[in-house]
Design a protein around this nucleic acid. Structure first.
Length: 436
RNA sequence: GGAGAGGUGGCCGAGUGGUCGAAGGCGACGGUCUCGAAAACCGUUAUAUCUGCAAGGGUAUCGAGGGUUCGAAUCCCUCCCUCUCCGCCA
């Protein structure tokens, strides 16, 4: 959520954010309510002040008759206070809900645009490979070789589920191992930081196995409860299945006051993510691009406000390092206002070349949330000068398993139907150089 | 799932109806001492919000939300969490 003081003082920026992010919030209504709310609060606080002072007098009063008279007077006073409080309540409620609806304000250099088609290519790496044989998509490759079984998964769990089998499953575990090894290695992080020209500490990532279920109120504090029809909800326990490890990594420090020396805090987790894909019935019905359940290695970091932009650049640099190691052609996208998430101030996506589909597809996202999530989570940092600020939060994909396997399979396919294993994974797969 | 005990400031911990934002300790910060450090001693040390140019002042906050009361950290109710014992269990 945004700071109401910021909203009040930066109305043009907030108004632009609402418009450019295609949000639907009545800012004028919010500002009127804010004004009204503060008036009512001033009245209530004045009344409470009088009450407190009168209460002290009662406590001090020694004459029993005087005391009783004062108490009788206070009894009447109470009703006036209660009336004033009842006046405030509905105003405060509507104010709260409008404030929560406001999206984060994009950084100044975020491209303004309506949708995906307005995203900017920042840079690209690798060339889409030319094949001298008839190529297959990952579905065909996987089914033919017995690495993917959609049929059985559909019978067992429904559409958009899959069994990943044999050496392809082995490859997924190898990917997890490879990513985890790299992210927890201080030297590797230091190298990535310096190669990217960043001025950041080489703090390695702390591996985490987080809960896969989350309470609605916490998901709300992460600003991820909506859209609800995208989330799996377990009614009998009022719990949601996480749509990303972000959902339970982000609240790791809620209601906590950190020290400046604690930051940055960097975490990595490999978890399943659950999505209903309610709004995309016709899209990507073939293959494992869009599943109800997929495994993903996720990075979540907490840092000082003035470092958060560079911290995001670090996470992007990590993503690029992974894709280069895996020899997958990719491009880096500067996501425009209309396509970015509500809590994001800046969003960078990776798109990998998928030969089976003949186009680049999104595989990674790096989200800079600034203090939008930490304000509601109440994750703060006590600075060395004694001041207290909300930390800035970054969240980014390290590797989304399904889509990464698709990219490896389709880019690494050979004429004989076998798939080349990226060199970095070979040692982690008992020396296997091809699968299929 | 059953029974019991608890949740207080950055941390530990006292406080069972009245000038309590809350004793004491630790930590942190500033100072004295020292060549410097440690120790010792002195002092400072919550957050949010409103108001004010500022100094300051008001209000709220003792797990969360309701209630009783002139007045609640303290009493009552609901919920959340932690711990102990029992049961069940990978």
């Amino acid at each position: 959520m945004l700071d109401i003081n910021y909203v009040r003082e930066n109305q043009p920026k907030v108004r632009a954010a609402i418009k450019h992010k295609n949000a639907d919030v009545d800012l004028d209504r919010l500002l009127i309510l804010d004004e009204k709310r503060r008036q009512l609060m001033a009245d209530i606080e004045r009344r409470r002040g009088e009450q407190n002072r009168a209460g002290e007098d009662i406590a001090r009063e020694t004459d029993p008759r005087e005391k009783q008279a004062a108490i009788d007077k206070m009894r009447e006073f109470k009703d006036g206070l209660k009336e004033a409080e009842e006046l405030l309540e509905p105003v405060q409620q509507e104010f709260n809900s409008l404030l929560l609806d406001l999206p984060n304000v994009p950084l100044d250099d975020v491209p303004v645009g309506a949708d995906e088609s307005d995203n900017e290519v920042l840079r690209s790496w690798g060339e889409p490979k030319k094949f001298d044989f008839e190529i297959k998509d990952h579905t065909e490759l996987g089914e033919t070789a017995g690495l993917l079984n959609f049929q059985r998964a559909a019978e067992v769990a429904g559409s958009r589920f899959v069994y990943v089998l044999g050496d392809l499953a082995r490859m997924q575990y190898a990917l997890m191992q490879y990513a985890l090894n790299l992210l927890t290695d201080r030297d590797e992080i230091g190298r990535i930081v310096s190669e990217a020209g960043l001025d950041l500490p080489d703090t390695p990532f702390v591996p985490v196995v987080p809960p896969l279920m989350i309470r609605p109120e916490v998901l709300g504090r992460m600003a991820r409860l909506e859209p609800r029809d995208e989330r799996y909800h377990m009614e009998s326990d009022d719990l949601y299945l996480i749509g990303s490890a972000e959902h339970t990594l982000g609240p790791l420090h809620m209601d906590q006051l950190l020290k400046e020396a604690d930051l940055p805090l960097r975490y990595v987790a490999c978890t399943a993510a659950f999505r209903r894909e309610a709004g995309s019935y016709g899209r990507d019905t073939r293959g494992i691009i869009r599943q109800h359940q997929f495994d993903k290695i996720e990075m979540e970091t907490f840092c000082l406000p003035e470092r958060s932009r560079e911290e995001q650049d670090l996470l992007v640099a990590v993503q690029e390092r992974f894709l280069r190691d895996l020899e997958i052609p990719y491009r880096v996208m500067n996501v425009c206002t209309g396509d970015m998430g509500k809590p994001d101030a800046r969003q960078i996506d990776m798109e990998c070349w998928m030969p089976g589909q003949g186009k680049y597809r999104e595989t990674h996202s790096a989200d800079l949330m600034t203090d939008y999530q930490s304000r509601r989570l109440s994750t703060r940092v006590k600075r060395n000068d004694g001041s207290v600020q909300y930390v800035h939060m970054n969240d980014a994909t390290a590797l989304a398993m399904g889509r990464t396997l698709v990219a490896i399979m389709e880019n690494g396919q050979r004429a004989d139907g076998k798939i080349n294993v990226p060199k970095v994974l070979i040692p982690l797969m008992k020396g296997l150089e091809t699968i299929g």
